[in-house]
Simulated assay, not measured.
Amino acid sequence: MAPMRELTVGQVAVRSGVAVSALHFYEARGLIRSHRTSGNQRRYGRDVLRRVAIIRVAQEVGISLAGIAQAFQSLPEERTPTREDWNVLSTAWRNELDQKIAQLKKLRDGLTDCIGCGCMSIDKCPLRNKEDRLAREGTGARRLAVR
């Protein structure tokens, strides 16, 4: 069996549509791995292409890099993530995405009337914070926070 051909950072950038600097950043964050040749050049296994694709999709829907890194801990090293791996990752992210969707809907629906700050200065505010009672719950915009 022939050994798997490795990719240079430039090849990964072209194939994945991600800038070389982003690949270096992902590597520094532990999201992807490379090894160095005797000439100190980075080389990546072909599995990195799928991992970068997962990173891009996850970021597009609002998953943080820390969340992606945590999810990647469940993947075996140096193996291309499979459909089953993707199912596990996306299922784990589903709850987080549902919460974000609920927060965005609440924000959208209240955006024209109030920013949720709980201020006491706007007489017409439907979410007016009489006697600053929201201060007991903490700082920042409290009314539009999904609980």
Rank of each mutant, 00 (worst) to 15 (best):
R79E: 14
Q70C: 13
V88W: 03
E96C: 11
A58H: 03
D47V: 06
G45T: 07
T80I: 13
V57T: 15
D113M: 11
L89Q: 02
T82K: 01
K106R: 14
G45V: 07
T80G: 02
V61C: 08
P81G: 05
K106F: 11
I54S: 01
V61E: 07
V61T: 11
I54Q: 04
R50C: 15
I54M: 11
T91G: 09
V52Q: 02
N95W: 08
S64I: 07
N95M: 09
L65C: 06
L111W: 11
E77V: 07
G110W: 08
Q59P: 15
V88I: 15
Q103N: 04
G110A: 13
T82C: 01
T112P: 06
V48T: 13
D109L: 14
I54K: 00
E78K: 09
L104W: 10
G110E: 11
R56Q: 15
R51V: 04
R83S: 09
N95S: 12
L97M: 14
W93V: 13
D113P: 07
T80K: 00
S64H: 04
L104F: 12
V88S: 03
R79L: 09
E84N: 08
S64D: 06
E84T: 10
F72C: 01
R79F: 01
R50Q: 13
K106N: 12
N95D: 14
A71Q: 02
R51H: 01
I54T: 06
R83I: 09
Q70W: 10
L97K: 06
T112C: 12
W86E: 09
A69D: 03
T91W: 04
T112N: 12
A71L: 06
I54R: 00
Q99W: 05
L111Q: 12
T80D: 02
R83Y: 07
K106W: 07
F72A: 00
R94P: 05
L75K: 02
E60R: 11
Q59H: 05
E84V: 06
R50W: 08
G67R: 00
L104H: 12
D113E: 14
W93L: 09
C114A: 08
R50H: 08
S90H: 02
Q70A: 15
Q70F: 15
R79N: 05
R94A: 10
Q99F: 04
N87T: 15
L107V: 15
L107N: 15
Q99G: 06
A92P: 08
A92H: 07
E77L: 10
A92G: 10
L75T: 07
L89D: 01
I101M: 14
D113N: 10
A58V: 03
V48F: 03
V57R: 05
A69R: 10
E96F: 04
